[in-house]
Every structure is written in C-alpha cells, then in structure tokens.
Design a protein around this nucleic acid. Structure first.
Lengths: 291, 291
DNA sequence: GATTTTTCTGTAAAAATACTACGCGAATCG
DNA sequence: CGATTCGCGTAGTATTTTTACAGAAAAATC
C-alpha cells in the first residue's frame, strides 16, 4: 500500500498554500502528531479551533478518503518517518539515546534493502555460486570483514573458497581465473580502483565475476552479475555502519539460496560441520552455533 | 508510544489459547492484515464469520482500547514492512520468499536486541575502551569476522588494536596483559573453551576483560564487563546468521560511544582517515565510506 | 447423568463518530 | 459597488463502534 513515506513533511511543506482553517488543523496535527492519530475528528476540530467538516476537508486534501483513513496514514507514516530519517547521532546524545538511534538506523537500512532486493540478480548469483568450482571472495577495507564472513559460510558447501585482502594476491588470482571460478567482489562504493581492476582482469579469463555493490558503479558494470543496492549510509557519519550489515544479510541470502539448491540431503553434511564444534565447548549443554 | 512492534506475531502466538470465535477473527486478520487495517468492524466480523462484538472483544484482549485503536496498532506494527511471522526458511521456498524471510529474521533480531540492550554494561565497556592503552579483539569461528570489523573501527581512535584468530597468539597476548590492556572477547555461546581460557589468563594480569556474549555464560562470568544478549538464533538453521548482525551493531554502538567520548574536536581526525581513501577511487564523485 | 455455574457469543439498542448538504459570510473580481 | 466564488460552519444524516443483556454452550459439581 505504498503510502507517503512522510505525511508530516508533506503537511509542513504545503502549509503556505493552505486556507486559514486548514492551517489551524495542520498546526494542531504538527504540534502533536502522535496524539492526533488517537483523537476523534471532534477532538481534533476543537483543539484546532475549527469545525469538524474542516478537518474532514483537510484530510481529503491530503489524499485520504476521510478522517479515519487519514489517521491511519499519519500513524504509518510516522513509524516509517522515524525509521527512515533524522536519527543521526548528536554529540549531545547520552547512553540512553544513541544506541537506540544506531539500532534504528541499522533496522531501517535492512528494511530499505529488503524492499529493493534485486531478486533476479540474486537468483543468478545463486546459480553461479552453486555451480562454482572455486569461489574467491574479495573486498577491501570494511568489506573485508564481510568477505571473511562469506568465506565462513561458503566453505561449508564443499567448494574451495578463498578470501584475500591483499590486492596483489587478488590480481594474481583473478588473472589466473578459469571456467568455474567465481570472483565475488564486495564494495560499497563500487569505485575502489583496485577492485574494479581485479574485476576487469577476471573478466578477461573464462571466470565469472559476481559483485555486491552500488548500482551503476564501475564495478557493477564490470560484473557478469551485479547485486546492487542503494544503502543510505548516513553521510555525516565518519564511521561506516549500515552498509556492512546489509551486505552480510545478502550473503546470508546467497548462502541460503545455495543450501536450498543443494536440497535436503545436504543437511546432514551441515549438521556434521556444526557438531564438530561441540567438543570445543564447555558444558555441552546447548551448542547451537559456530560461535 | 512504544507499541508492540509485532502485533501479528503476538496474535499468531496466542492463537492456541483463544476462543473459537476469536480464532476466527485472528485468522481473518492474519490472512490479510493489510486489508484488516482498512476494514470496518462489520466487514471484518462478516469475513471472519462472527459477530461485531466478538471482534471488539478480540481487540481488547490484545490491549487495544477498541477496534479503531486496534487497527492503528496493527497498521503501525506492520509499517516496518516486516512480516515477523515468516521465520524459518523451508525447502519449498522460492527466490521470492526466502530472501524476505531472512531479512525479516535479521530485522526482528535487531529489534529484539535493541529492546534488551544492557545500557549500563555498554557504558562501562565504552569507559574501558575509551581509556584503553591497547585493545585486543578476540573471536573464533563466525565471530572472527566481527572482530575483524571491530579492529577496523577502533584503529581510528589512535589506539593500538590487534585482532587474532590464532588461539595460541590469543593465549600469549592474554598472559602478557598489563594495565591498560583491554581484551574484548566475542563469543555467541560464551562456552568456547579456548576463549574462556583466554579470558581467565587475562584476568590473572592487570588487564581488563570485556566480552560480548550470552548471559550467564562462563565467558560472561570471567569478564570484568560483559555485554550479554539473548539472540534467538533459529536453532533449526545450520548456518549461523542473526547473531553476527547483532554483534556488529553492538560494535557500532561501542565505537560511537568512544567517538562521543572523544568529543567534536576528534572529528577532523576521522575525516582525515576517510579522506585518505579518496585517492583509491575512480571518478572522485562521492567517496563517502571506507568501502 | 443432571444441575449449577461459568464462560462464550450473538442480538439489539445506545453512543460515539464521521460524513453530507446546505447556507451564510467573507474575499475576489469585474 | 455588485456579482461571483470560495471558505467555513451548522445541522442533520449515515455509518461505525460500543455497551448491555440474554441465550447458548461448555465446564464443573454433585
């Protein structure tokens, strides 16, 4: 139901072009939007100092079918509004505020990513990965941690997996690519020269280049299959945060895709890998995960 | 207004303990929650095959003041675009289902973690980290990728940071700990013997042990400061997923905490680090992130 | 197994809420 | 200055929601 992402913003912006009574309604809503979602049309009218039909007209002006519908939109747009915007950490934030903000940002990044998942490309990437004879995960900087995680997931599929941060190693391996080699390159910007060049080198061989990066970036263009996502990394921030989370989630999706492709008979294999860790644990109580 | 984030999940879970007609209402809502937010109580009642008061009672049972209030909650709880119900991936899932499920799981893990954040422990951990003379990030298995990320964040604070996956290196460093050394140990289970032993070794020195792990785990008990979270890693799954995401988010929180502690005069330093990457990019258009 | 008690559920009426039609008054334009 | 348009509120109507109550079903007790 693609409602307006931010109805409040809309109201605020159209404030100048509104009638006298409509302005009153707008102000009443803006002054306490949360309360507005729980009021009856009568209460809101009296709080704004106007008549009920004025409120109703106001609602219709903003595309709602009536007052209840308007309240619904207002409520939903506020949730998403909180999620999508204005959660930058300030220096004045204390311990009770900034952790929540950071989590909200992370959550909204995932929500946003979920909505723009390029399913087709993911399916193709799964194809490539499932059939790979060998997989190389390459990334630099922050994305290096993601490739490490990817390595950790994919070795389970009984495919040789490498993971290099050294650009020279990356180049050599890329140049030595052959049929069945998949070079999986992760770069948030898709503009890191070293990685784009690796992609170019690999393309000149028979190998396949799959990337997880930004749309229309040089890296995406150099790839046989590019999974591209626009992640609103808060540009104010000096520490990169949300992009890795999304990248990791995508890696999860790909690993799961390959698992599904392998079918149920593959589960015992995964279970064996997991069980192998039991002995490393104190009190074998529950030994669920790899860590 | 802290509504339940996952009203749908709530409904789904209380399904067994409901009356006959309430079950009907629940099913009607669950089958198309989006439509339910736009229906009148009469339509919903007839669709569910019950009377209007039954719907009303149903709403009140879930903490709403009445039907309109219930619709509001339902709508807001759904906005996040997340069907918290989905959960486990099935082998019958296709490309259009399982990615969404995985993202939903990731999102709900973060939401859950956000609600149980041990703020006090986080504040103490930030204290330790901000004053550290040296920081060692240790983890094994999946958590190793997280420590890699942590290393990547914390070196920016001009503190020597190490990150070892080799248990022997970990032990030696731990044994050599001294005042000002912080050993930050990440383990989802908190029962990995090698890591618990490292914590013990470090505790015997003047160093500080901070851990990110499970509540009441041996590792948590061996720590000067333990950030503990219960993360519902789906035990059916054979690939660990959500725990790393949460761990990464917590690392973000800690890094941000240290940044805030350093104050605004520290920003230019971070900006310089970021700028240093510009030269590695093609078309210097926008060079926002470390990757 | 019958009876009492409790719990559930629907009917119907009352209350609350939202909408429409209409008309008055102010602003605008000729 | 008059005519027209537009904005706004009043009052009535329609819709929706809630409450009160009573019958039916289920559970508990004897």
């Amino acid at each position: 139901m693609a409602y307006d992402i931010n109805l409040l913003e809309d109201i605020n912006q159209s404030l100048p072009g509104l009638n006298k009574s409509e302005v009153k309604v707008a102000q009443a809503i803006l002054s306490d939007p949360d309360a507005a979602t729980r009021m009856s049309i009568a209460s809101l009218a009296s709080r704004a100092g106007v008549s009920e039909p004025s409120v109703n007209r106001f609602c219709k002006r903003f595309g709602a079918s009536g007052f209840p519908d308007f309240k619904l939109r207002l409520a939903t747009s506020m949730v998403s509004g909180v999620r999508y915007i204005s959660r930058a950490v300030e220096f004045s934030d204390d311990i009770d505020t900034y952790p929540g903000k950071l989590f909200d940002n992370a959550i909204s990044a995932l929500v946003a990513a979920k909505e723009q998942l390029p399913t087709g490309d993911i399916a193709r990437a799964v194809d490539f990965l499932a059939q790979a004879r060998r997989i190389h995960f390459f990334g630099l900087g922050t994305s290096a941690a993601v490739t490490k995680d990817a390595e950790h997931k994919f070795f389970r599929f009984n495919v040789p997996v490498t993971n290099h941060q050294d650009p020279l190693m990356q180049r050599m391996l890329a140049a030595a690519g052959s049929v069945g080699d998949v070079f999986f390159i992760i770069s948030h910007t898709g503009r890191t020269r070293a990685l784009v060049e690796v992609a170019e080198l690999a393309r000149q061989t028979e190998a396949t280049v799959v990337s997880l990066t930004a749309p229309q970036s040089p890296l995406a263009q150099e790839s046989d299959c590019a999974i591209t996502l626009t992640i609103g990394e808060n540009t104010e921030e000096y520490l990169p945060m949300t992009s890795r989370l999304v990248q990791l989630a995508v890696i999860d999706v790909l690993a799961t895709g390959v698992t599904l492709r392998r079918g149920e008979r593959f589960l015992p294999h995964l279970a064996r890998i997991k069980d192998s860790l039991k002995a490393t644990r104190l009190k074998p109580g529950y030994a669920e995960s790899t860590e």
